[in-house]
């Protein structure tokens, strides 16, 4: 597989380490009243779509960027690759 790294262009997937669903970016707030349940869902519940999936890949043998890769689980077609840091900020994460 080839991943079109936003900074470096097409790179072999062998250089990357796969983590999983990009929803792992959405870590709940520990101060929430329902923090336990929210963390449980965050950690253990995953969608398993037969189609587009947004997932986290780490360019471990490269520039150490975490990427959000949008990949079709049926065809392996990759339609979008973003820096996870940008995605995280767009989803309201900060410090």
């Amino acid at each position: 597989m080839m991943i079109d790294h936003p900074l470096l262009g097409l790179r072999d997937a062998q250089e990357f380490t796969y983590l999983g669903d990009a929803s792992l970016i959405d870590r709940p707030d520990w101060r929430s009243d329902t923090a336990q349940e929210e963390f449980h869902d965050y950690l253990y519940l995953r969608d398993n779509p037969a189609g587009e999936h947004r997932e986290l890949w780490y360019h471990e043998a490269g520039d150490r960027s975490w990427l959000v890769v949008t990949r079709n689980m049926l065809t392996h077609e990759i339609t979008q690759v973003e820096l996870a840091r940008d995605v995280a900020r767009a989803r309201g994460r900060s410090k």
């Binding site: 380490t17 983590l19 792992l24 970016i25 870590r27 986290l56 780490y58 471990e60 150490r64 960027s65 975490w66 820096l83 996870a84 840091r85 995605v87 995280a88 900020r89 994460r93 900060s94 410090k95």
Partner: peptide, 19 residues
Amino acid sequence: AVLVYRNMEFARQCLFPDM
């Protein structure tokens, strides 16, 4: 060593991107 570094980068880039 490798795993901790990976997890730290994950936290830095994906969880606390403005730190």
